[in-house]
Deep mutational scan, measured.
Amino acid sequence: ATNIVSKVKWYNSTKNFGFIEQDNGGKDVFVHKSAVDAAGLHSLEEGQDVIFDLEEKQGKAYAVNLRIK
């Protein structure tokens, strides 16, 4: 899926990962520091509106092509 609009559930800049809620009630989506860095960001804030693409690797959903709404 591409261009999903949602909100950051939480992000831990010390552990370099977090999760984004899915508005459709699906499972929370993992977001890694590499996606945050690629977006030119230093961190994410809880409740922040984001747009991302969903990529599945080894049966897990990852946020990629992250951008701020």
Results as ranks from 00 to 15, higher is better:
52 F>T: 01
42 H>V: 13
66 L>M: 03
4 I>C: 10
4 I>Y: 07
29 V>F: 10
33 K>P: 02
39 A>N: 04
27 K>Q: 10
16 N>Q: 13
2 T>E: 09
44 L>D: 00
41 L>V: 09
36 V>I: 11
20 I>Q: 01
2 T>Y: 13
30 F>C: 04
56 E>Q: 12
33 K>M: 06
6 S>Y: 07
1 A>C: 13
1 A>D: 09
44 L>E: 01
26 G>I: 09
17 F>K: 01
55 E>S: 09
49 D>S: 13
28 D>A: 06
32 H>K: 03
11 Y>V: 02
9 K>D: 00
67 R>E: 04
29 V>S: 02
46 E>H: 14
17 F>A: 01
47 G>C: 08
4 I>E: 04
30 F>V: 02
58 Q>Y: 14
53 D>A: 03
18 G>H: 01
21 E>S: 14
31 V>T: 02
40 G>R: 08
23 D>T: 15
14 T>R: 14
55 E>D: 07
49 D>T: 15
23 D>V: 15
65 N>L: 03
68 I>R: 07
45 E>L: 13
41 L>R: 05
40 G>N: 09
44 L>H: 01
56 E>N: 11
46 E>T: 15
13 S>G: 10
41 L>H: 07
55 E>Y: 14
54 L>D: 00
51 I>Q: 08
45 E>R: 14
44 L>T: 01
54 L>M: 10
62 Y>K: 08
7 K>C: 06
26 G>P: 08
51 I>V: 11
64 V>C: 07
16 N>W: 08
13 S>C: 14
12 N>M: 08
67 R>W: 04
3 N>S: 09
8 V>E: 00
17 F>M: 05
61 A>W: 15
56 E>C: 14
15 K>P: 00
19 F>N: 01
69 K>Q: 12
49 D>H: 14
64 V>Y: 05
47 G>N: 07
35 A>K: 04
65 N>C: 06
19 F>V: 04
38 A>N: 08
37 D>N: 14
52 F>P: 00
32 H>M: 05
39 A>E: 01
21 E>H: 14
57 K>Q: 10
43 S>Y: 13
43 S>N: 12
16 N>L: 07
47 G>R: 06
62 Y>P: 03
20 I>K: 02
29 V>I: 13
12 N>E: 05
14 T>G: 11
4 I>W: 07
21 E>K: 14
3 N>V: 06
35 A>W: 05
21 E>R: 15
69 K>R: 12
55 E>K: 11
11 Y>K: 00
48 Q>P: 02
15 K>G: 05
29 V>K: 02
2 T>P: 07
9 K>S: 04
13 S>D: 09
4 I>Q: 08
5 V>E: 11
47 G>H: 07
64 V>R: 07
35 A>C: 05
63 A>K: 02
28 D>N: 08
65 N>A: 04
39 A>Y: 03
56 E>T: 14
67 R>D: 03
50 V>T: 02
54 L>F: 07
13 S>P: 14
54 L>T: 05
49 D>M: 15
62 Y>M: 09
46 E>I: 13
4 I>M: 10
26 G>M: 11
35 A>Y: 06
35 A>P: 02
28 D>S: 06
23 D>N: 14
44 L>F: 06
56 E>F: 15
7 K>P: 03
39 A>H: 03
24 N>Y: 11
55 E>C: 14
6 S>E: 02
62 Y>L: 05
46 E>Y: 11
47 G>E: 04
7 K>T: 08
5 V>L: 12
67 R>Y: 05
69 K>V: 14
17 F>Y: 15
50 V>E: 01
3 N>G: 11
5 V>G: 08
68 I>N: 06
38 A>G: 07
44 L>G: 01
32 H>C: 07
31 V>C: 03
41 L>I: 10
54 L>V: 12
24 N>W: 11
55 E>V: 14
47 G>M: 05
40 G>L: 06
50 V>K: 00
57 K>D: 09
51 I>L: 09
34 S>P: 02
22 Q>L: 13
53 D>H: 04
25 G>W: 09
12 N>A: 07
23 D>K: 14
53 D>I: 04
67 R>S: 05
15 K>D: 04
4 I>L: 12
3 N>F: 07
61 A>T: 14
13 S>E: 10
40 G>F: 06
30 F>I: 03
9 K>I: 06
49 D>N: 11
64 V>P: 02
45 E>Y: 15
36 V>D: 00
20 I>D: 01
34 S>A: 09
51 I>F: 07
4 I>N: 07
56 E>H: 14
8 V>Q: 02
48 Q>V: 09
58 Q>L: 12
59 G>P: 01
38 A>Y: 08
29 V>T: 06
5 V>S: 12
36 V>W: 03
62 Y>R: 09
10 W>P: 00
18 G>D: 00
23 D>P: 15
49 D>L: 15
23 D>W: 15
31 V>K: 01
28 D>C: 07
52 F>H: 03
13 S>W: 10
57 K>A: 11
50 V>D: 01
52 F>M: 04
56 E>A: 09
64 V>G: 04
57 K>F: 13
59 G>W: 04
27 K>T: 09
56 E>V: 15
58 Q>D: 15
56 E>R: 13
24 N>H: 12
52 F>V: 04
13 S>R: 13
7 K>E: 01
8 V>Y: 01
16 N>E: 09
54 L>E: 03
56 E>S: 11
29 V>M: 04
4 I>H: 07
62 Y>C: 08
13 S>L: 11
54 L>S: 03
13 S>T: 12
27 K>F: 10
8 V>A: 02
46 E>K: 15
68 I>T: 11
69 K>G: 12
24 N>Q: 11
34 S>Q: 10
10 W>N: 01
67 R>L: 05
38 A>P: 03
54 L>H: 03
28 D>F: 05
15 K>L: 15
55 E>H: 11
54 L>K: 08
12 N>K: 09
11 Y>F: 09
19 F>Y: 06
10 W>D: 00
17 F>R: 01
